[in-house]
């Protein structure tokens, strides 16, 4: 009997792997990135908690930019096609990914979605991740930039509570600025918390429903 596991006479062998757990996802993400770059497509991964206004921000963005540059959306949700239907109504190309029990998009899902969507050359592609401030931070999708959206109806301490997500962001969007007079949200504190966990992240504030200060968001999208 084997002394290690009691499973019969056999030889135990230790195999050294030293490989990254997400090696496969990262390889698929690299392939997505090469595929997108080859066609001049800029991909932006939008992440936030549920209800921060990702889809509303996208609706306005698609309406405002669609004439200037082709816009397409990969819409990630656990269930339903509701958000894809909302975005399709704005006139852009949309494909829905339902993750079911999954709490994040991965590079394979985005690769499959790209096959279906087949965006035009030079497209500005938004990947709306599953509403979740934890899991999506870990999975490279092959995007050019990660955007984290937080709204003033949430706490200003969100960046400290969900530091992994904010540490991964290239841009932080503070949404629902029109509600600022009615809620207890310290914008300066939020700004300080973001730079505490991620000094290199940019930050813009706006209202997706009213369009207040939306210009700096478009500037970031089109110039970066």
């Amino acid at each position: 009997m084997c002394a290690t596991c009691g499973c019969g006479p056999h030889h135990h062998e230790t195999v050294t792997l030293e490989q990254r757990v997400l090696a496969k996802n990262d390889a698929l993400a690299r392939a997505n990135r090469v595929r997108l770059a080859g066609r001049g497509i800029r991909a932006v991964n939008l992440m936030s908690s549920p209800g921060s206004g990702k889809t509303t921000l996208l609706e306005r963005t698609v309406r405002d930019l669609n004439g200037r540059r082709p816009v397409a959306v990969i819409e990630g949700d656990q269930e339903t096609r509701l958000d894809a239907d909302r975005l399709r109504a704005t006139g852009c190309a949309v494909t829905q990914v339902n993750t079911g029990a999954g709490c994040h998009l991965d590079a394979a899902m985005v690769g499959d979605a790209l096959d279906r969507l087949d965006p035009a050359d030079g497209t500005l592609l938004f990947i709306e991740n599953v509403g979740n401030l934890v899991c999506p931070a870990l999975f490279d999708l092959g995007e050019d930039g990660k955007v984290v959206i937080v709204s003033v109806t949430e706490g200003a301490d969100k960046p400290l509570k969900y530091p992994y997500m904010f540490a991964a962001a290239d841009l932080v969007v503070v949404n629902k600025l029109d509600l600022l007079p009615y809620v207890d949200f310290d914008l300066d504190a939020c700004r300080a918390h973001v730079s505490a966990v991620n000094p290199r992240a940019s930050l813009v504030t706006l209202s997706a429903t009213r369009g207040d200060d939306i210009g700096s968001w478009y500037e970031w999208l089109l110039l970066n």
């Binding site: 135990h12 062998e13 792997l17 505490a196 000094p199």
Partner: peptide
């Protein structure tokens, strides 16, 4: 606050024992 992270981002399969 100008720090370079030197460790803590590891997520690796080190080894396995097989029979």
């Amino acid at each position: 606050a100008d720090l370079a992270v030197t460790g803590g981002r590891e997520l690796q399969i080190v080894s396995m024992e097989v029979t």
